[in-house]
Nucleic acid binder design. Structure first.
Length: 542
RNA sequence: GCGCCCGUAGCUCAAUGGAUAGAGCGUCUGACUUCGGAUCAGAAGGUUGCGGGUUCGAGUCCUGCCGGGCGCGCCA
């Protein structure tokens, strides 16, 4: 496009235009096939600046782009001034050939510069098993890591947990009460999972707890929370979610990160004493109030840990930090970024992805979620009911920033109609076709060259396959994955239509079969690659 | 009260400021005697909460209402 503009201005068909402010235009894939394989609104954007009707500019651009070569077969001006471009079959054929060469790596689209990115997600406190309330954060965080990796970034997956708070002591006291056969304290944990923990306390831990009455809750709580943390790690592994780093809040204090960060803020004058507490001057960076870092009783706040943590993270050499937080934490985003800035860290590289609330219901009735009262549905239970692939698809296909409803009964009932199975079925069907072809001694062509030009149906399918890398790049940029699930669904539809209209395995016509086998194999790989990006299986049979 | 997010088909959700607002589910009507019917073809279903504004063009941006969610602690 840039070259086309330059050429048109160069030979006087278009007037020169002022470079400032720069005009932004897009090259997109139009939804309707009648609008070409690519379309640009450049002429519409330039019209005002150049003082010429958009269609005139579009006509000049179309001529400058040219057609009839190896890359472009046709260029058109349409509507108010869009320029529509059709790809040449020869180009489509060679591009589709490259899919089989790439295999399951197809769709990965490395950017020019790779960054080291820390993604912290889930980070639920280990005082109880993960609930369905943690599901979205777990899946969305994992999906984010996957698309970032797909564009070449180096991602560290991190789980941050509080192992020193008051809830840990309460957990320990609950364990103690249950083991002694006493009622659970009012402010203790009432979930069913605590009982088995109480029964399995090792003798040495119990002895130690009993011998130090002042620290009984802490000692038992520390032990219990580690058991629960291990259980959480297992639950996440069952979701296909793994972490590179489990970071405890207490380590930030014992390793001095919190103290050093606060000292730094003292030196720069960004904290001050008032009412016996230490305050961070967050208002100096646009927050609506200052924030307490150390309470008047000398205890640091949670925010103090955050300050030490952001500093510790950047200290490990990351180019960007992404915190995946529940939307209910939105009020704390500003102070985090402000603290990063005050510490001389990269404020703009300290980012928070807010995950909107999931309203879990069962048959239309809200499912309440409280670890303390013990009324909740665990992530493990959800998974047993709807399956990992269906759950992954559900969250991958919705924007993280909008609130969604999740009816567990409905999800179970509809699971056989879930779009994820539609896509997986297309994959299994192709696998079956390939098996049948092999049994009949038919082989796929090494190259599609010359095999698609005469068949619009096959050409249309091939063009669909070529969209994946762009979609992956956009997904990484937008930090969303709905476009990938939408693409996989559309591709499955296109394939099913192809299957209806074109016989692939035909022993009486091995030449045509060879092209079609190559094409459907590329389709299979594209579907598998898209599903793999989402952490979803691509079965050869169902 | 102040701040952030949201409001799209009966339901659940899509739609980098672009062309006729799309999928799935649900509802209704059809389709194979050979490659997998977990499929395919089609229909019905919309004043994108309401009103202004910006522009060639607004579901999308600005603004005022209405409705919903979440925050606003020396809790985490």
């Amino acid at each position: 496009m840039v070259a086309a503009f330059a050429a048109a201005v160069e030979d006087g068909r278009l007037p020169p235009f002022p470079p400032e402010p720069p005009v932004t235009y897009e090259v997109t894939r139009p939804g309707s096939p009648g609008h070409g394989d690519y379309a640009t609104n450049a002429a519409l954007k330039m019209a005002g600046k150049m003082g010429r009707p958009p269609r005139d500019i579009a006509a000049v651009l179309a001529a400058a782009i040219g057609s009839g070569d190896d890359l472009i077969s046709k260029v058109d001006v349409a509507g108010p001034g869009f320029v529509n471009i059709w790809l040449a079959p020869g180009y489509v054929e060679s591009a589709a050939d490259s899919i089989r060469a790439a295999g399951l790596d197809y769709g990965r689209a490395p950017l020019a510069q790779s960054q080291r990115i820390n993604v912290e997600f889930v980070s639920a406190n280990p005082t109880g098993p993960l609930t369905v309330g943690n599901a979205r954060g777990a899946f969305v965080g994992d999906l984010l890591c996957r698309v970032l990796e797909a564009v070449g970034h180096q991602v560290t997956r991190e789980y941050y947990f509080n192992d020193s708070g008051a809830q840990v002591e309460k957990l320990g006291l609950t364990v103690q009460a249950l083991k002694r056969g006493q009622p659970v304290p009012d402010d203790g944990y009432h979930g069913d999972y605590v009982g088995p923990l109480a029964e399995s306390v090792p003798a040495d831990v119990w002895q130690k707890a009993e011998s130090e009455p002042d620290r009984t809750g802490w000692i038992l709580g520390e032990w219990a929370s580690e058991q629960i943390r291990a259980g959480i790690e297992q639950s996440l592994a069952n979701l296909g979610v793994r972490f590179d780093m489990w970071k405890s809040e207490s380590s930030l204090h014992t390793d001095g990160h919190v103290a050093r960060a606060i000292d730094k803020l003292r030196a720069s004058g960004d904290v001050y004493e008032q009412d016996g507490a230490l305050w961070f001057r967050s208002t100096a960076f646009g927050d609506d109030k200052d924030r307490v870092v150390i309470r008047s009783n000398g205890e640091p706040t949670y925010f103090a840990s955050d300050i030490g943590y952001v500093s510790e993270k950047f200290g490990r050499g990351f180019d960007e930090l992404i915190y995946v937080w529940g939307a209910d934490h939105h009020g704390t985003v500003a102070r985090l970024k402000n603290a990063a800035q005050a510490l001389g860290l990269n404020r703009d590289a300290t980012n928070v992805l807010l995950i909107a609330w999931v309203h879990f219901v069962r048959d239309g009735v809200e499912v309440s979620m409280s670890k303390r009262t013990g009324e909740f549905v665990t992530l493990d239970e959800l998974l047993a009911e709807v399956g990992v692939d269906a759950a992954r698809w559900f969250f991958a296909s919705r924007a993280p920033t909008t609130g969604i409803d999740f009816d567990i009964e409905l999800a179970k009932k509809e699971s056989s109609e879930n779009p994820v199975y539609y896509v997986q079925y297309a994959h299994a069907r192709i696998s079956s076709i390939l098996r049948k072809a092999a049994a009949e001694g038919l082989k796929a062509a090494d190259s599609l060259a010359g095999g698609l030009a005469d068949d619009p149906v096959a050409l249309g399918l091939a063009k669909d396959l070529l969209r994946l890398p762009d979609i992956v790049r956009d997904a990484a940029e937008e930090q969303e994955t709905q476009s990938i699930t939408a693409f996989a669904t559309e591709l499955a539809t296109t394939f099913h239509a192809f299957y209806r209209d074109r016989r692939v395995v035909d022993a009486s016509d091995p030449a045509t079969s060879a092209y079609r086998l190559a094409l459907v194999d590329s389709t299979r790989l594209t579907l598998a690659a898209a599903l793999a990006l989402l952490g979803i299986s691509a079965p050869d049979s169902m």
